[in-house]
């Protein structure tokens, strides 16, 4: 039994699985949440202040 756990290939395999299995589970959950439409996609939001360029200002002056 000790020989198996001491085998470096076995240790490397366990280490790889220890990293990959939780990652695969996380990706799976993420995929399911998106697929089932359980997560919200936020609509585009404007920045916190007006986005006025010089051209816009000139256009406003002409109009007024």
């Amino acid at each position: 039994m000790n020989e198996t756990s001491g085998n470096p290939i076995f240790v490397v395999l366990l280490f790889a699985l220890r990293c990959l299995v939780p990652l695969a589970i996380l990706f799976g959950i993420s995929y399911l949440l998106r697929k089932l439409g359980l997560v919200a996609t936020p609509p585009p939001e404007p920045p916190d202040d007006a986005d006025e360029t010089e051209a816009d200002l000139r256009q406003n002056e002409k109009e007024s």
Binding site: L33, R34, G37, V39, A40, P42
Partner: peptide, 16 residues
């Protein structure tokens, strides 16, 4: 709570 209300943002979920 956000998940139940369908308001949980998905930005932090890992993707391909």
């Amino acid at each position: 709570v956000l998940l139940v209300r369908r308001k949980l943002p998905g930005d932090m979920l890992p993707t391909w």
